[in-house]
Write a protein that binds this DNA or RNA. Structure first.
Length: 482
RNA sequence: GGCCCCGUCGUCUAGCGGCCUAGGACGCUGGCCUCUCAAGCCAGUAGCGCCGGUUCGAAUCCGGUCGGGGCUACCA
């Protein structure tokens, strides 16, 4: 049997890292099994679904490199893949279930239902509605005929229980007294999640349902519907949830968890994928940096952890740095370009591009987030450097004037402007002035870059060019006197 | 309240009855390197929630307890 899995987001919110991880595990499983990864849209909640969210989800998946073989935008034998376009099918299944006695039109009074549930809870019973509040059949028939709107509820067989084996959690068993006669069709004729999702899984031939643990206790409902449709339930695998640093379910409270936000901050998709993959799955040995191919080769659903995982921004950031350092300098320049252009408000010139490529290796190893790179190279691209006042007051004192004067003298008479010649000129200056490298070079760094923190000095000056270097040192020297 | 899931360093995890003096990674601390910051290298820090039981032997199996989480909608 060929594996068929799906990722079925509801476009009622942007794609967040939790959803991305679920999609990733589905994708990894499909790829490792040579199966099909399907993307569908569970958009039965017309109120809350928006095209913007739908687009964000697709963008995010593509950016992460999680390509799908069937579904939205790519089509396939079961199109359409949007639930909003399959409403007729769900109504059809609902009426078949009613006809077969597996579901019924429900006219229970909402307030009475609420009281019933409260009472059950107060008495320590499960607040699972069992259909006992329904009017007699003749009355139901009459009111329905009179045009009254009703929901359709699934008739959960009681006594009874549903058992299944979850790939990551093991054997599960739910007493039906804990499962209520749940609504499958709303009174407005639209299906609930339980119906739509299950019908799609059956119709699309889904073999493995890999999803968040929040759906674990709904699984009996899905199995009940599946069997009532005369189908065999798929294999289920429920992934533990992602938590924030406080141990609570990851949400907006913990900052922006949107995949798009990570992208904008300068995270690399390969780093995010690597991090997410290891958040709940381990290849078994001591590897931390795992390539995509390696993941596919070694991924096994049975190795997925049952523990909830706290999303650790520090580790992700470290990993992003590892991936950034692994790039070639040219690739690095290419990838930081969007941030550079935004920072500059224009595209860099050919000369600026040359400078960027020259300094790239040195900036690269200091970058954890692509967005930071723009800050580090800004001094090479602007006409006038902006001094960081804290840096200025820290180093522009004591021997600073001598260092700056000495640097101007030493650099002015240089024949060639290379990293080596600059270094030997400045080291000679330090020697003559009797200054330590630390004391003598920091003022120059601030004069040229505006900050006590910058890429290596000699390399920076070489990239900046003689004219601009001298200009900046003189300007700083003047400011120091003034 | 009811049902369900989970419980190894601060965090992610390896561990599947003896190989565990519990391993790795991030973080943190110290050192080396060094023109700043990084990177790199070295060292250190820190954990089997608790109580019983099974066993010659338990982080590993069982029971209980405590703690955390999820679900409990005409949301998904």
């Amino acid at each position: 049997m060929t594996v068929r899995v799906r990722f079925a987001p509801s476009p009622t919110g942007y794609l967040h890292v939790g959803g991305a991880r679920t999609a990733l595990y589905n994708w990894l499983f499909a790829r490792s099994e040579g199966g099909t990864f399907l993307l569908r849209s569970d958009d039965t909640d017309a109120e809350r679904s928006t095209p913007e969210y739908a687009a964000d989800i697709l963008d995010g998946l593509r950016w992460l490199g999680l390509d799908w073989d069937e579904g939205i935008e790519v089509g396939g034998p079961h199109a359409p893949y949007r639930q909003s376009q399959r409403l007729e099918r769900y109504r059809e299944v609902a009426s078949e279930l009613v006809a077969a006695g597996r579901a019924y039109w429900s006219l229970a009074d909402p307030e009475a239902l609420e009281r019933w549930r409260k009472e059950a809870r107060d008495q320590g019973r499960a607040p699972a509605y069992d259909g006992s509040l329904e009017p007699p059949p003749e009355e139901v028939e009459r009111r329905l005929a009179a045009g009254e709107r009703a929901t359709v509820r699934f008739r959960v067989p009681r006594p009874g229980r549903t058992e299944f084996s979850d790939v990551v959690r093991g054997d599960m068993s739910f007493e039906h007294t804990q499962v209520e006669d749940f609504v499958i069709l709303r009174s407005n004729g639209t299906p609930t999640y339980h119906l739509a999702s299950t019908v799609d899984d059956v119709d699309f031939g889904i073999t493995h349902v890999i999803r968040g643990e929040d759906l674990l206790s709904s699984t009996p409902k899905h199995i009940l519907i599946t069997r009532a449709m005369g189908a065999e339930p798929p294999t289920y695998a429920h992934l533990s949830l992602l938590m924030g640093p406080d141990g609570k379910k990851l949400s907006k409270r913990h900052g922006d968890t949107a995949v798009a936000a990570f992208r904008a901050a300068g995270y690399l998709p390969e780093a995010l994928v690597n991090y997410l993959a290891l958040l709940g799955w381990s290849p078994g040995d001591e590897e931390t940096i795992v390539s995509r191919d390696e993941m596919i080769r070694r991924f096994d659903l049975a190795d997925v952890s049952r523990n909830p995982a706290i999303f650790d921004m520090d580790k992700l950031q470290w990993m992003n740095g590892v991936y950034i350092r692994a790039m070639t300098p040219d690739e690095f320049v290419d990838r930081i370009m969007p941030w550079i252009a935004e920072d500059l408000g224009r595209e860099p010139t050919a000369e600026e591009l040359r400078i960027l490529h020259e300094i790239a290796p040195h900036v690269q190893e200091r970058t954890k987030l692509l967005a930071e790179a723009a800050d580090q190279v800004r001094f090479l691209l602007v006409d006038e450097v902006v001094y960081d006042e804290r840096s200025w007051s820290k180093v522009m004192k004591g021997d600073a004037p001598r260092a700056l004067d000495g640097a101007i003298a030493a650099l002015s008479e240089l024949d060639e402007w290379t990293i080596e010649s600059i270094e030997s000129a400045l080291r000679g200056m330090l020697e003559r002035e009797g200054l330590s490298a630390r004391k003598g070079l920091q003022p120059i760094r601030v004069a040229v870059s505006g900050s006590t923190v910058s890429p290596p000095l000699f390399e920076s000056l070489a990239a900046l060019g003689r004219r601009r270097t001298l200009e900046r040192i003189r300007r700083a020297r003047d400011r120091l006197t003034a």
